[in-house]
Design a protein around this nucleic acid. Structure first.
Lengths: 205, 205
DNA sequence: TAGATTGTTAATCGATTAACAATC
DNA sequence: TAGATTGTTAATCGATTAACAATC
């Protein structure tokens, strides 16, 4: 528990800082400043200092931040200094793309199973995964204690499946279905919908 | 041009309202209220009224909003009362998923071409698309006047390709590459990175 | 040391909420 | 009409920025 509650808007930026720091580390850099990091992510230096200072004093006057140390602290804060098991519900094109995506494991997430309710898909393989029957979804979640699910299913099914998953213990949903989903306060949800993101830009064109 | 500048944070919510209204329309509903719409999207009724009132008086006291009429107004405001041609750069799994995705066309977007720089992929088909050579990307953008591009390529290539696209006239980027991209003020960018979205939830687990 | 950069404060700026007159 | 709901105002709440002492 944190002593004081940190606003959502701040914690939402930390993964972006972490991603930029990872790139700097990959490039062999050892230290950075709020100024430099800010330029990379398009956020003011003052805001970066304010954000990270919510969690501790991670920098040094005069020299800035050790990249490795700040990454460790951010991973700790975000609880991605471990690997979370994740399931994917829906084996359409997006489910396939996620199952094949190699970019999750080194950022704290491991897809452990993918489900579909289409009898023709069940049993087929995606890389090392065998598509499992949605009928076994809830039992699987309960037995494995899965806390994170990615929804890549039709909008019409999203709320129903989300409700079942939450009932079974899931506490974080990444929803690719093009529909808003209602969740209780103790369950987090994030949305990915390319049409929404595109429509956020056309206003300015 | 709007008389007064409307904040980004408000225009960013409009696509979510539009998506919810479309679902209500599909369900055969004719009118809704700020209260009802707010419950669907998880936003307060007061905020919905404030948001839409930035652009005009679209509701009626006592009865609420005509769903069809409000959708028309939102589409007009967001400039999605037309179809925008969009290109996809990168024919990996995500590029494939987007090319096959049927959910964009009825929300204002038409993918017209997909590019890759891998000689083995060039010429292969994805549905009705033939993967085109990235060497022809800039010429294509200039000749067609494309304003919107979706990037589904490696992080290492994202900034370079983005710079070239912007130089060629692109004004809106939807970036799936896991990296921040710098753009000039007249170019909009939106980010989709599942790891970022997942890391925004683990903090609370 | 001199220069650089943090962490933090106070001021500014912006967003959300509550309330209600207007009116369908 | 009576009930419902908008559009808008003012108050509250929250986020960002600028500035700088502290200090590496």
């Amino acid at each position: 528990m944190d002593v004081k509650k940190v606003p959502d808007i701040i914690t939402a930026r930390l993964p972006v800082y972490l991603r930029a720091l990872q790139r700097m580390a990959d490039a062999g850099l050892k230290t950075t400043s709020s100024q430099e990091l800010g330029e990379k992510v398009g956020i003011s230096a003052a805001q970066i200092r304010k954000d990270v200072s919510q969690f501790g004093e991670f920098g040094k006057q005069g020299t800035g931040y050790s990249i490795d140390y700040l990454m460790d602290r951010l991973r700790e804060i975000l609880k991605v200094n471990r690997i979370w098991d994740v399931i994917v519900v829906g084996a359409g094109d997006m489910g396939h793309a996620l199952a094949n995506y190699q970019g999750l494991i080194n950022r704290g997430f491991n897809i452990v199973a993918i489900f579909d309710n289409n009898q023709e898909k069940i049993g087929q393989t995606i890389g090392d995964y065998v598509i499992e029957d949605s009928d076994n979804l809830i039992e699987y979640v309960k037995e494995s204690g899965i806390k994170i699910a990615i929804l890549t299913l039709p909008a019409s099914a999203a709320q129903i499946v989300a409700d079942e998953l939450i009932e079974a213990g899931v506490r974080a949903l990444l929803n690719y279905a093009p529909v808003s989903i209602a969740t209780p306060p103790n369950v987090k949800i994030q949305y990915i919908d390319p049409a929404i993101h595109l429509q956020r830009m056309t206003y300015y064109l």
